[in-house]
Structures are given as C-alpha cells and as structure tokens.
C-alpha cells in the first residue's frame, strides 16, 4: 500500500521536475532540476528492488555527469543576452518533431496491456549478487564490448583534448 502511494508521489515529482527543467529560464536551475528528476527516478528503481541500479544511477548521472554539466554551464555563464536568436521555423519544426515522438511513444504504450507480466516476482532479482552473476555469465560478451566502447571513447576524448598531435 505504501509503495503505491510512493510510486504516485515519485511519478508526480519526476514529471514536475522534468517540466521544470524545460520551463526554467536559468540554465543552472534547469540542471539542478534535472538532478532532482534523476533522484526521483532512482527512487523508482528502489521501489522495483533494484538497489544497485539506483545507487549507480545516482553516482553516474547525478554525481558525475551532471556535475560536469554544471561545470560547463557555470563557466559559459549563459544568460539572456548571449542566447542566440532562434527563428520561428526552427521552433515550429522542433514542436512538430517532439510532437511526433510523443505520438510514437503513446502508440507503443497502447499495446502495453497485452504484454504478459512476469509470472513470479523474485524480490532478489535486482540485488548486486544476481546482477553480477548474470552479467559475467550470460552477458559476458556484450558487457566486455560495451566496456571497450567506453575505453575507445575515452581515448578519443584524450586525442581531441591534445593541443597538437605529433
């Protein structure tokens, strides 16, 4: 019963913070609202018994990526004067693009009722031990490939950051 209320509360907060991200005038406020939105999503993970995912979500998104975001925005010191003027066509096309994305999402969710739900709910499925077993036994290759992807991205960033390549 409590979890249902918590779910509605978290969902409400998540949507509210997500809207605040879009509607805030100040980019710093947007970033901070995004951090709050990440927190509510981590709360959803906890409700789903995926504690590991929740913790990693906080560490990676709220702790690392958003700090860098904040960093960049603080240094750029964005404000009204420096904001580039956007033409009416650009705004209209953005509205059409995001509207069609909404249609796609609604269309895909319409069939969600026919998806069979998991028969037996295993409360320990999101715990770190089971996750590790699954990752290193069943999904070892995709796991390693994704880590190589991250490594190559890192090497690429270092190459781009170098002033002169000899």
């Amino acid at each position: 019963m409590i979890t249902t209320y918590l779910f509605y509360l978290l969902s409400f907060l998540a949507i509210m913070f997500a809207l605040m991200v879009v509607f805030s005038k100040n980019p710093i406020h947007s970033v901070l609202y995004l951090v709050l939105a990440f927190f509510t999503i981590a709360g959803h993970y906890v409700l789903l018994n995926a504690q590991f995912l929740a913790a990693v979500h906080i560490i990676v998104y709220a702790g690392a990526i958003m700090v860098l975001f904040l960093f960049v925005i603080m240094l750029l010191n964005l404000n009204k004067e420096t904001e580039p003027h956007k033409s009416i066509w650009l705004k209209a096309s953005a509205a059409v693009a995001s509207g069609s994305l909404l249609v796609v999402l609604v269309g895909s969710l319409k069939g969600a009722a026919s998806i069979p739900s998991a028969k037996t709910f295993d409360a320990s499925i999101g715990l770190i031990e089971n996750l590790g077993q699954t990752l290193f036994n069943d999904f070892l290759l995709p796991f390693e490939v994704s880590s190589i992807l991250l490594l190559s991205a890192m090497v690429g960033a270092v190459m781009l950051g170098k002033k002169s390549i000899k």
């Binding site: 913790a55 560490i59 709220a62 702790g63 960093f71 715990l127």
Partner: peptide, 25 residues
C-alpha cells in the same frame, strides 16, 4: 545495513560537491 553500503557512500560523496559548487557560483 544495506547490501550496497559502499555504493551508497560513493553516491553521497559524489553529491557533496554540489553544495560547494552551488554556493560558490
């Protein structure tokens, strides 16, 4: 005694920087 205690510690640690950053900015 959560089974992700160390990760919790790191999560809180990585949030600690926000106070200083927001205050300083």
């Amino acid at each position: 005694d959560v089974n992700i205690g160390i990760l919790y510690l790191f999560g809180v640690l990585s949030l600690g920087v926000y106070g200083i950053m927001i205050g300083g900015w």
